[in-house]
Nucleic acid binder design. Structure first.
Length: 524
RNA sequence: CGGGGUAUAGCGCAGUCCGGUAGCGCACCUGGUUUGGGACCAGGGGGUCGCAGGUUCGAAUCCUGCUACCCCGACCA
């Protein structure tokens, strides 16, 4: 998608040169696009905007099953791109994929006390394995004679089944480390659900690693956090804070939970990924020991980490606007769409042929292109449609362009369009895609910077939390204070940023001494 | 699990108060004119009115009971 040599050039300068070049070659004018409104606007009702958008951009819809969504082809294509890149990053760091069962014996959950407490309230349980004809109404009913000996829990996460398995795999330090990831679905029976952000069933990857030492496990935990943040920033184009969760926010069963936190356009925070240092909790619960180099028997050290289809929600809420989705080029199922414009059959044939020729030349550069040459929809309809779906670049080629050797090129991120020479496309498009990826990120970065506030008094805190954004404030480190703040403002501590500097101060709520600032926000 | 709302064509809705041939917009089908920002004209197809009972000569409409979904809270990634 990007030409390799761009990476070794100063991209900004290169791009400027390209542009000054064009302005000599061709006449172009930048126009702003105006569009019919099909979405609720963000200012009118942000959550309605989100719901509208997910449905209208064809990402997903609600299913016949309460709380469970159907991810539609266009949405799934984005998820596949997310998967492909993360999978590549995991494998590059020596992780391998495997698959563990969907069903977990109920007794496994009781082994780790913290863990069970965290998930018990939202587990789906399989109790029977057979249906039978219901004589009363002609339908089907559960066969009471087919009750399972031990009930099975539909996995809300797989630590227990995996550590029960690792017990058989690990005997010696020579068996370590184990660096396994699985792509799977999990079920958490949520009360209130929203497409992608919180659904009863969702897709994710969960990594589960086993190590000889605490240090090695911590290193793994942070390595993954780094992968997540790199992925978020370079692919999702969302700047994230890397940080540590407080005790009350951490994963049930972990010693430390690290996270990446992103800020959405409505000023609410969204946790986009987590990486846990599990210590020896699961090794002890499932009796996973190894013979060390010194011949001693030791418990194994563990990590687990995951990102889910929730990232899709983050992607939508971070960048999109009142006209629809805005997708970063690196994750867009189609980076470019070409729309032929014509009146006569001859013009149709000619523009269509040229469109396909352009597509072929761009495909050779690794750009994904779709030609929409359907005769059943009008150009205006198509323009609106691809804007709604967030296609980064749109090319329109009509009779005038055929004569002049030009083409109209419209950017989704800035909603601007201009006319350039066709023979420049293979140079301009890759550079523009790269530029769009960067612009989207920069916009999100600027938004976060403008919505992150240092707050030192409680009055100020109360005012600012209503406005939204990240609040950087001192906290005395007491869970009771954290709870009090949450009860009073609905704000939680999103994380203790890893790059936070030691700074003496007074807790924003209690006035007790504090050694560093933490990030507060209302969150999804 | 509390509080509120909704259920009528694929989608969005009106009709319900005051019972009497089930409607509108979009979408869909056919033909024509159109096509550089969601085209227009003409014709056409499509609904056991969420489900189950009840009242009535007659129920989308009145009564009873279910169910599902949405929104706001409590809980969570």
């Amino acid at each position: 998608m990007m030409l390799p040599f761009y990476e070794v050039l100063n991209i900004g300068d290169y791009f400027l040169n390209l542009y000054s070049h064009f302005s000599i070659l061709i006449k172009y004018c930048t126009k702003h696009i105006k569009m019919a409104k099909v979405l609720t606007s963000r200012s009118e009702n942000y959550s309605q905007w989100y719901n509208d958008l997910v449905i209208k951009a064809d990402l997903a819809e609600n299913s016949a099953v309460r709380g469970c969504m159907v991810i539609k082809p266009y949405g799934y294509a984005i998820w596949e791109k997310i998967q492909a890149e993360l999978d590549r990053m995991f494998k590059e760091t020596d992780h391998v994929n495997a698959y563990f069962p969907l069903f977990i014996p109920k007794s496994f959950f009781s082994r780790e006390a913290q863990h069970v407490e965290g998930f018990a309230k939202e587990c789906a349980v399989v109790t029977h394995y057979r249906l039978m004809k219901d004589e009363e109404n002609g339908g089907l009913k559960v066969d009471p004679s087919a009750k399972l000996e031990e009930e099975l829990v539909v996995r809300p996460t797989s630590e227990t089944i995996i550590w029960n398995t690792y017990k058989n795999w690990i005997h010696s330090y020579r068996d370590l480390p184990i660096l396994i990831n699985q792509w799977a679905n999990v079920v958490r029976w949520e009360m209130r659900t929203r497409l992608f952000l919180r659904t009863a069933e969702f897709l994710w990857q969960e990594g589960h690693t086993a190590h000889e030492t605490s240090e090695e496990a911590v290193e793994e935990t942070l390595k993954i956090l780094g992968i997540y943040s790199t992925f978020a920033e370079e692919f999702l184009a969302i700047p994230v804070l890397k940080g540590l969760k407080t005790d009350s926010e951490k994963f049930a069963g972990a010693l430390d939970t690290y996270c990446i936190e992103a800020l959405m356009q409505d000023g609410k925070a969204l946790q986009a990924g987590t990486s846990h240092f599990l210590g020896q909790n699961f090794a002890k619960a499932f009796d996973v020991k190894y013979a060390s180099r010194e011949g001693r028997e030791e418990y194994v050290w563990a990590t687990s980490w995951g990102v889910s289809t929730r990232l899709m929600g983050a992607l939508v809420m971070a960048h999109s606007d009142d006209n629809g989705l805005v997708l970063p080029p690196k994750l867009a199922p189609q980076q470019v769409v070409i729309i032929p414009i014509y009146k006569t059959p001859e013009e149709y044939a000619a523009t269509r042929e040229r469109a396909h020729a352009i597509k072929d030349s761009l495909k050779k550069l690794g750009v994904s292109v779709k030609v929409d040459d359907r005769d059943t929809q009008k150009p205006g309809w198509k323009f609106a449609e691809y804007e709604l779906k967030g296609v980064p670049l749109r090319l329109a080629i009509g009779p005038r362009d055929m004569q002049n050797g030009t083409i109209e090129i419209a950017r989704r991120d800035t909603l601007t369009k201009e006319v350039i020479a066709q023979d420049q496309l293979t140079t301009v498009i890759p550079a523009l895609l790269d530029e769009i990826q960067r612009t989207i990120y920069n916009k999100a970065f600027k938004f976060r910077a403008e919505n992150t506030f240092n707050v030192d008094t409680w009055d100020e805190f109360l005012v600012q939390i209503e406005k939204g954004g990240f609040i950087s404030a001192h906290w005395d480190g007491d869970a009771a204070t954290e709870k009090m703040i949450q009860d009073e403002t609905k704000a939680t501590i999103r994380c203790i940023p890893l790059d936070s500097v030691a700074e003496a101060g007074l807790c924003v709520r209690t006035g007790k001494p504090s050694v560093r600032r933490v990030i507060f926000a209302r969150s999804y």
